[in-house]
């Protein structure tokens, strides 16, 4: 196999399977817009049970963050175990800090 052949076969690979289009990222974007709109609408409408609104808002935020980190930050892709570990570790300590602060101040 000559250098030119190798180059040619590499170019073939490059322009085929590994190039994902923008479609799924636009779907993630529209999904994020919808989740955001639900959250804003629930607050703007008012009159909804406050406890339910709080749970709904947090659910919309967590869902949006999961989707964006998975697709836009590539955490769902192969070879991302260490980044996932770092993020889970970071969020775990962050969550512990929040629980601790609320426990100190509210009780």
């Amino acid at each position: 196999m000559t250098t030119a052949d190798r180059q040619a076969s590499r170019d073939v690979v490059k322009h085929s399977a590994r190039h994902e289009g923008p479609q799924k990222h636009i779907i993630v974007f529209i999904f994020s817009i919808i989740l955001t709109a639900i959250a804003f609408a629930a607050v703007a409408a008012g009159g909804v049970n406050p406890a339910f609104t709080v749970i709904l808002l947090l659910a919309m935020a967590v869902l949006q963050v999961f989707v964006q980190m998975g697709y836009w930050m590539h955490l769902k892709d192969r070879g991302h175990m260490m980044p996932i570990l770092f993020m889970v570790g970071g969020f775990f300590i962050a969550g512990t800090a929040i629980v601790m602060a609320l426990y100190w101040v509210w009780w």
């Binding site: 993020m87 970071g90 969020f91 300590i93 962050a94 929040i98």
Partner: peptide, 13 residues
């Protein structure tokens, strides 16, 4: 970014 998550976590707390 993991460290940033901790930083913002404490500010949210």
């Amino acid at each position: 970014l993991g460290g940033e998550a901790v930083l913002f976590g404490t500010l949210f707390a």
